Structures are given as structure tokens and as C-alpha cells.
Amino acid sequence: MLSPTQLIAQTFALDSTQVSAPLPLQTLWSGYGQIERYHLHSSDPKVPDSLIAKRIEPPTRRSHPRGWNSNLGHQRKLHSYEVESHWYGEWSKELPDSPRTAHCYARHTVDNSHLLLLEDLDAAGYPQRRQQLAASECEPCLHWLAQLHGHFLQYRPASGWQKQLWSSGTYWHLQTRPDEWQQMAEGPLKQLAPAIDQELNSSDYTTLVHGDAKVANFCFSADGSRVAAVDFQYIGAGCGMKDVAYFMGSCLSEDACESQWENLLDSYFSALHAVIRKRQLPFPTGDLELQWRNLFPMAWADFERFLMGWEPEHHKLTHFSRQMTRTALATLQHKGI
């Protein structure tokens, strides 16, 4: 396996002395690797001044912050890094300038170890990270999601169209989280979890969802008007509402969710319609919006299902979240499910 310095030197035809020592930025979840910044010293204008190396090296001894150390979880993480490598190597190249992601300079894989050399988004004009937002600050992220979803939008696609990515995006997808489902207390949400998943997959329209679209995975411009996104381990097919619901829950207070969720959906769908018009897609936007808007409570309930098994005392399990879940369950009951 090449080291980051070796791959950088190879990619940009540099001597190793032209590559600085790494600046550690982050340890990956459960100790599966590191994210580091490297500075490059070259007079060639095609060589960036800095870049980010995402280095995945699965640990020999696994440790999860909340004690979830199953082999299934290990295999899920390994596949997630494989998916992310394919995203940067093949799929992201299809995107226009918006939605903004990091350019991938090179990738290197040996067995379950991966190394990605990515554009430094701080240097590209996205230096800010946020943990919370006011509702008025959500538009750039919602528009980014609309651009992603609009670009990859499909109408009743053939099975397997999302090759090399997750067949169902998001890190909390029911089929990949049987242990957490087993830990749930008995009740309607646990019983109807498969029906919720089926409803989310029933729409005529599907796309690629980011799969972990929390506000912490967006990089903001200094004035907050533009964003780029990172962390594509769980990108895959799905209803766009999964990303939108998860994003809102990641950054807004409960009061803001309760008072602004419909307005924020309006902003998202306005941006999505604009993408569809720009791409001249033959999709009836009214039908798309009706189907997806009706699935918003299902998407919220789907994530609540995961939390109820993973950490039932989680702070995101709010009154608003329970209200959305009750709406989803009532819809299923009305359908006779």
C-alpha cells in the first residue's frame, strides 16, 4: 500500500521532499483511518498548494464509541469506503459545477485499505464548518441536495442502475441495521419498519441520496452563501426525502423544525424544479413533488427507527420527531397495513 506521500509524489511528479509532513485533521469513525492535510511545494501551477488525504486502514482491534462492534457493522464500514472510492473515481465526474464536491486527484486501493487524494475545500473557498443552523441559513444546503437529486433523478429505473454504490443509500437503511432493529422495544414502529422502508422505495421517482447529509458534512463559504459536501460513504439509490429529513434534524432546533419544515420543503422543491427544467427532464414536477412530499414523514420515521435501536435516549428523538413518526404510522394504518 502506497503512503500518502508516495501517492502524492507519483500523481504530481514530485520529489518526496516537495511534500510536507501531514497535518492530522480527523480520525475516522471507530478508528478506521485518518484524514490529513498535505502542503505541496512546486512552481508548477497545475500542482495544488495543498490537498486532503483520506486514508482508510481498518483496525485489527475494533472499537465503537457506543459498543456496536459486530462483524456485520465491520463489513458495512468496509463496503462504505469501497462505495466512496467508486463515487469519487467514477460517479462524481458526471456532476456539473453545482453541486460542489471535492475533486479527486488520485485513489489507491489494496484489499480493504483505501487512499483518496482530494481537493482541499478550505483552500477552494469553503473554510467554514457548522454544527447548527437557523432555518434562514438552510437554503444553500437544501439547494445542494436538490442539485444532487435532480442530476441523478430517475423514473422507474431498472434494478442495479446505481452500480458500485449502495442499492439503498443512507447509513441507517433497515437491511443493513438488523442488530439495531432487534434492540428496539416492541411497538408499532418496530413492527412496521419494513412497511416504512417499502413505502420509501415505492415512489416512481428515485435518485442518488448522499446518505449522511448532516450539516457537519457541508463545507461553507465565508459568508455562508455557498456549500460543498464531503463524506460519500453511504451514497446510493433512494427517495430524496431521506437526505432532506436527516439534514433538517441534524442542524435545526426542535422549534425550528416544527415551525419551518414546510417552508424548507418549499425551498428544496423550488430548487429541484429548477434543476429539472434546466436539464429538460421529461418528468412532471407536480407529480414528483406530491409523491416525495407525502414521503417526508416516512423518511423521518425511518431514521427514528434507527435511533430507537441504536440509542433510544438520543437528543434527536424529540416531540417533533415522534409527531412525524405518528403521521407516518397513521398513513400506513389508513392504507390497511
Rank of each mutant, 00 (worst) to 15 (best):
D44L: 05
S63A: 13
N112R: 11
L133C: 12
H108E: 15
A135P: 08
Y88E: 04
L133E: 09
L121S: 03
K77M: 13
H79T: 15
L133N: 05
N112G: 03
D97M: 07
R62M: 10
H86E: 14
L116R: 00
R62W: 08
K77G: 00
A102E: 06
Y105T: 06
R37V: 12
A106T: 12
T101K: 00
S113K: 14
R66D: 10
D44E: 06
S136W: 03
V47S: 04
S92Y: 12
H103Q: 13
L40C: 10
Q131V: 02
A134D: 14
P127V: 07
L40A: 09
A135I: 07
S98C: 08
R55T: 15
E82G: 12
H114F: 12
S63P: 01
S42M: 06
L118E: 09
H114D: 08
E94W: 07
A124Q: 05
S80A: 15
V47P: 00
E82W: 08
H74I: 09
L121A: 02
P48H: 13
G67K: 05
H74M: 04
Q128F: 01
L78G: 02
R66V: 10
W91G: 03
S85C: 10
Q131A: 03
S70K: 04
P59A: 06
I52G: 08
K77A: 13
Y105M: 01
S80P: 02
Q132H: 04
I52T: 08
P96W: 06
E94I: 00
P96F: 04
L72P: 02
S42R: 08
Q131K: 06
A134L: 12
R100F: 04
Y32M: 12
R107G: 12
I35K: 09
H74Q: 08
E36S: 13
W68L: 04
L78V: 15
E36K: 08
L95K: 01
T109V: 14
W87H: 13
P48V: 11
